[in-house]
Amino acid sequence: MATTEALTPTVPTPSEPSSPRKGGLSPLARYLLVRLALLIPMIWLLVTLVFLLMRVIGDPIQAALGGRLSPAQIAERKAEAGLDRPILTQYLEYLGGLVRGDFGVTLTDNRKVSDILLVNGAATLELAFWSLLVAFAVGIPLGRLAARYRDQLPDVALRLFAILVYAAPVFFVGLLLKLAFTPFGWPSSGRASTTTEITLQQVEPQTNIMIIDAILWGEPSLILDVLQHAMLPAIALGLLTGGVFLRLVRLNLLQTLRMDYVTAARARGVSERRVLSKHAFRTALVPVVTVMGLQVALLLGGAILTETTFEWKGLGYQLAEYLVRRDFLAVQGIVTVIALIVGVMSFLIDVIVAFVDPRVRF
């Protein structure tokens, strides 16, 4: 005869949720380690591609100095630069130099590319900063306005504006700005006036970022002069990215406004203005942070044309100068630096997004 205990169904005892293993990595740490591990091969592919492209173009010594030096002098310069060695040896030396922070030496003016990075790279960094400020000032509030008046006249006008500023060549926008503001005495070339540049060269320690050096000097007129010179280049380049931000903020706001928690807020009687600013706006900004990493490449690409148009002596301006001189070793070093900046910025944006949006960690 079966006992009562045997007839009673056995109910499994629910197990405790497994706790993270001691010494184990958190999801955020694992995510960041994976992104860092992916960054290394990405940078390796970028620098390898730059190296191969520069070799496909041809002999850089002949291209830069041919016609000005005798064949014996050209052969001597090739030996000095290591270009007479096997391609694999050149490649390994190139990678070894990058690890040591040695990006090479230019052919036409014998400058270290690392020095160009410190001086001209600081100018590009300053221009990118001002351009991002313009992009945020234009794209985020106008995108919010377009979402609020969806399919109405303000929305249609702002979407058309976003398409125009994104599609218009940045050098063309720069020329229009110069034509519009130069007659009113607005500075349209250089990073500062000659007097200001000479004065700021005496700042200790010199950062090569004009606005910081002007603040360190402590003279309001110098700060104003630097800001005036930065205004037109920053608007020309910032509108390019601002159009992207405008459309992105509008799209994400419209998607967020259709979510359940926003509908619940409206059902509780929350005003539309508060729903937009308090409940939907912050969530819609998360994809904007993600896209910022992609816009770094856009800013650096546009900086070449912007800096050339406004004679802003940054990396883009210097790169254009070396292209004209056919100094391909200098071009190789500068493009490698730009590739590294894009890769590192992409990783930093991933880190920021991981802290802002926990969903990406899992």
Rank of each mutant, 00 (worst) to 15 (best):
E16P: 06
P17C: 13
P20Q: 10
P20N: 13
P20A: 14
L25N: 07
L25C: 03
P27V: 11
P27I: 09
Y31A: 07
L33Y: 02
R35N: 10
A37P: 05
L39P: 00
I40W: 01
I43A: 11
W44N: 04
W44E: 06
L45P: 10
V47R: 04
I57C: 04
I61V: 14
A64N: 11
G66Y: 15
A72Y: 09
A75W: 00
A75S: 04
E76Q: 00
R77V: 00
K78W: 12
L83A: 04
L83I: 03
D84M: 08
Y94V: 14
L98H: 03
G101E: 13
F103D: 07
F103Q: 09
G104V: 07
L107Q: 03
D109F: 13
D109I: 05
S114I: 09
I116E: 14
I116A: 10
N120V: 05
A122N: 06
A122P: 05
T124K: 04
E126T: 01
P141F: 06
A146F: 02
D151H: 11
D151T: 10
A157I: 01
L160I: 02
A162M: 08
A162Q: 09
I163D: 12
L164F: 15
V165A: 06
A168R: 07
A168M: 15
V170S: 05
F172K: 08
G174H: 14
L175Q: 09
S188G: 03
S188T: 00
S193L: 12
T195S: 08
T196S: 10
I198H: 06
Q201H: 03
N208E: 11
M210V: 07
I215E: 11
G218E: 11
E219G: 15
E219M: 15
L222W: 09
L222M: 08
L224Q: 12
L224S: 12
M231L: 15
A234F: 09
A236Q: 12
L239G: 04
G242Q: 12
G243H: 07
F245V: 11
R247T: 11
V249G: 11
V249Q: 14
L251W: 05
L251M: 14
N252Y: 04
L257T: 09
M259I: 03
A265K: 13
R268Y: 10
E272Q: 09
R273N: 08
R273F: 02
V275F: 01
L276T: 02
K278G: 02
H279W: 11
R282I: 10
A284T: 06
V288R: 00
V289K: 03
M292T: 11
G293S: 14
A297H: 13
I304W: 05
E307M: 02
Y317P: 13
Q318E: 05
L319G: 07
L319Y: 03
A320Q: 08
E321N: 14
R325I: 01
R326P: 14
D327I: 08
D327Q: 01
V331S: 08
V331T: 13
V337A: 14
V337F: 15
L340C: 13
V342D: 11
M345R: 01
D350R: 01
D350H: 01
A354W: 06
F355Q: 05
V356P: 01
